[in-house]
Amino acid sequence: MKTDHQTAAPTEAPAKPSWLKVTYDQKKVDKMTHLLSGLKLNTVCAEANCPNLGECFGSGSASFIILGPNCTRACRFCDIPHGHPKDVDLLEPLRVAQATKKLGLTHVVVTSVDRDDLPDLGADQFVRTIKAIKELNPKTSIEVLTPDFQGREDCLDKVIAAGPDVFNHNMETVRRITPKVRNRATYDTSLHVLKYVKEHAPKTMYVKTGIMLGLGEKDEEVYQLMDDLRAIDVDFLTIGQYVQPGPKNYTLREWVPMKRYQEYYKQAMKRGFKFVASSPLVRSSYKAKEELEAVENK
């Protein structure tokens, strides 16, 4: 007879490793939460239940998620609600710009849910948001983390023309695992997005991508991904640990040991990325400001 242990659902995650410890200062987080909810803004920090929320909110930094809160795709790794999207809020760009000013952000990250329901797939709202931030915060650098826009070049052209400092689009994982965790997104479409942006953006705009580890990827698959990215001259790479948001999400395969992050860092730097962040708690917008500063001060 099978024991309870043997019949336990495979979704039961292994115990969390000690490096997943984060600090939490309630007063600072409450202050930030209050400010953000007063402006009716969503952050990817809260929507995706980010483990770094305490640290980032504590230091007055946040990543805004526009066009939400509901996403038209249901990727299996993601914690952002999938559901019927809402009307585009034309005042949202101004509120993001106001929040950037109120928080005194010198670098701001703007991302969005997928909006396959809109004729422009959400590109125009990115443009409006970038413009509003620039108008109220001329010294703040802007990083966008965009959907794949179904690979549509007209959408990419619009966002490029708005002139963010960093254009980020996440590959999320290696080629083999992509169809298992991403919904309506393909490895080749995402590569095309990055390639197109690199080819059509001014030289001063950095192109960035990020992946998660712990989905069952092998070393050689990660190195192949790095080679694919360098072949199209992607500048920045972030590598962090996948944390399964809930029992229905893609099952966590492994808490990847620190030494593998270090090895991937070395391998990525050797391949010529301008900046690599590789550590379990790295997320695509985590310490994005420090990343940009590090490259610009070189």
Binding site: K16, S18, L20, K21, V22, Y24, N49, P51, V243, P245
Partner: peptide, 11 residues
């Protein structure tokens, strides 16, 4: 919590 081990600081 779901995604982390939070260390709560004294106020």
């Amino acid at each position: 919590t779901e995604k982390a081990i939070s260390q709560v600081e004294s106020q």
